[in-house]
Design a protein around this nucleic acid. Structure first.
Lengths: 114, 114
DNA sequence: TAAACTTACTTTGCCTTTCGAGGCATGTCA
DNA sequence: TGACATGCCTCGAAAGGCAAAGTAAGTTTA
């Protein structure tokens, strides 16, 4: 029984990139991130909690984020910030995005027929 | 039994966009498209046949592409070209891509801390 | 004060897209 | 003859992303 190994889809990991980038700017908690993504992208991108929280947990697990709990108004918030490892990951993802974006752009800008 | 309806992932449909855009430039066949994507994107994006062919079939099925078979060197090539319907779809996808891209860009350009 | 909404975190289960790999057939080059 | 390129097609799996719902506590409103 051999395990079939597939690469992740070439456009994936953008939510991760966005989360890392926002957290590099400023420490935030999950629910805040959900709203920040909508606001900063002018509603162009809306990531629900079903996306954000799993991403946060994954990034924390692999050492890209560190978390600290903080009680505010009787509620608990989990604030995340980017570790040095996370900064490396952010740099790498940003570079990949740049390549992909430029690739797509060069297709879109290719001269049209008609 | 209720059917759960999920939206497509927000970044999806890029292969479709690329295929439509390349075919709007010039009639092509599947195998040629596989290589064209790699070349035009300078290897940044590599879509295999397992991606390209299903996309072509889907686009043909919904009227975005028309196909004509042509025998060359004893082999059969299926050339695809973009229909008016396909042009509309291309315009729509290009617009969506623009919005998403700008959204991501505005996150990436947000001022950094540190 | 009850209803309704917001904040805040978490998880489940599904669906779609994408992916690698393989199969088939012909042609060319060494 | 073997290896490699052309050209088409499809299967099975993985992962990523998604809506929805559950929990719980605070706030607003009627």
């Amino acid at each position: 029984m051999t395990i079939r190994q597939t690469n992740p889809p070439f456009m994936s990991g953008v939510p991760e990139l966005l989360v890392l980038r926002l957290l590099a700017r400023q420490e935030m908690y999950g629910y805040e991130l959900v709203k920040a993504v909508r606001v900063v992208t002018s509603e162009a991108i809306r990531l629900g909690e079903g996306v954000i929280y799993p991403v946060l947990h994954g990034l924390e697990r692999n050492g890209s984020l560190s978390a600290r709990r903080k009680a505010v108004n009787g509620r608990t918030r989990v604030y995340y910030s980017v570790t040095p490892t996370g900064q490396q990951r952010l740099d790498r993802l940003a570079g990949e995005w740049e390549r992909i974006k430029n690739g797509i752009q060069s297709v879109l800008e290719s001269p049209q027929n008609a």
